[in-house]
């Protein structure tokens, strides 16, 4: 078995719309070992759709194609929906942006965690509860037994996102796709949640795809960075070398980052050249 966890070659996602076909993702390729890969780009660059296509949760009208889309040597596109579903939530997991919307509002947090577990493993109710509580503990929720019985609207955003992480990690997946996991949270809570995510990913030796528009966050948190623009990868670079990025688009993004002690006036405008998207 090779140590490549995920291989993506020429991934395309197309949406039919009233005004014709819209290509959200246009030939994205990268491969992932058990490492932390960041995908950055502005809104509409196709980074989220890339994550969802790998996960297999694109809307039904979207068309997903690729020369190769393989997880652990298994071709994701040719397998049956049932096989694909069995992977989702057990070996590949996903965290969404805002726990306010991504947790079912009428189901207690505990039941939502237990639901993931019991979908993929034959465990008794009592054991599932135990493991859910342990998972809540692992995401540093101090009073797991209480939070277990709470509804999503009864907890804060940071707590909700930890519950979301718990719900997705309880089965011990090998690949985690985190789609803007901290963008909806208060800045003070962002770091807490990131630390928890970082720790769990490191402990369990998982592969992580971290989708974000926050360049600074990605560069400090990931090993490698994929920069996307208009549905394409414009640059792949080690996070530590991001400062020396070559592509003008990446340079443009870097340029927009504010620095303490420096006046930015007027704010730079991102350069967008059609040939980068060609």
């Amino acid at each position: 078995m090779s140590d490549t966890l995920l291989e993506v070659d020429d991934l395309r996602v197309t949406f039919p719309t009233r005004t014709g076909l819209v290509q959200a993702v246009r030939g994205v390729s990268f491969s992932l070992r058990r490492e932390r890969l960041g995908i950055v780009g502005e809104s509409g660059s196709g980074k989220s759709q890339t994550g969802r296509a790998i996960m297999g949760v694109t809307p039904p009208q979207a068309e997903v194609s690729a020369k190769k889309l393989a997880f652990d040597g298994m071709d994701l596109l040719s397998m049956s929906p049932r096989e694909r579903r069995a992977l989702r939530g057990s070996r590949i997991a996903m965290i969404l942006q805002d726990p306010k919307y991504s947790l079912d509002p009428v189901m207690t947090i505990g039941r939502q965690i237990v639901e993931t577990l019991r979908t993929h493993e034959k465990v008794s109710k009592a054991e599932a509860r135990e493991r859910a509580l342990a998972m809540l503990q692992a995401v540093q929720i101090r009073d797991p037994a209480r939070v277990f019985d709470l509804y999503p609207h009864e907890v804060s955003g940071g707590m909700g996102q930890r519950a979301m992480i718990a719900m997705m990690l309880v089965t011990g997946p090998e690949l985690m796709i985190a789609d803007e996991p901290t963008s909806a949270l208060d800045v003070t809570v962002q770091l807490d949640v990131l630390k928890i995510l970082d720790k769990l990913v490191a402990e369990r030796g998982m592969g992580l795809i971290f989708i974000s528009h926050d360049l600074r966050l990605v560069s400090s948190f990931c090993d490698r960075v994929v920069v996307m623009y208009a549905g394409k990868v414009v640059e792949q670079i080690k996070a530590s070398e991001l400062r020396d990025a070559q592509h003008p688009y990446t340079r443009g993004l870097l340029n927009c980052m504010p620095r303490i002690g420096f006046e930015r006036h007027p704010l730079p405008v991102l350069d967008r050249k059609p040939e980068w998207a060609a």
């Binding site: 969802r52 989702r88 939530g89 991504s102 979908t119």
Partner: peptide, 29 residues
């Protein structure tokens, strides 16, 4: 069209469970 449906798919739930267990349960109100 809600995000928790995407999350439910990501959890690997069956369509039946997603529709009748999550979506309809929310539409019940």
């Amino acid at each position: 069209a809600q995000e928790y449906i995407v999350a439910a798919r990501a959890k690997g739930l069956s369509e039946r469970r997603i529709i009748w267990g999550h979506a309809l349960r929310n539409a019940a109100v």
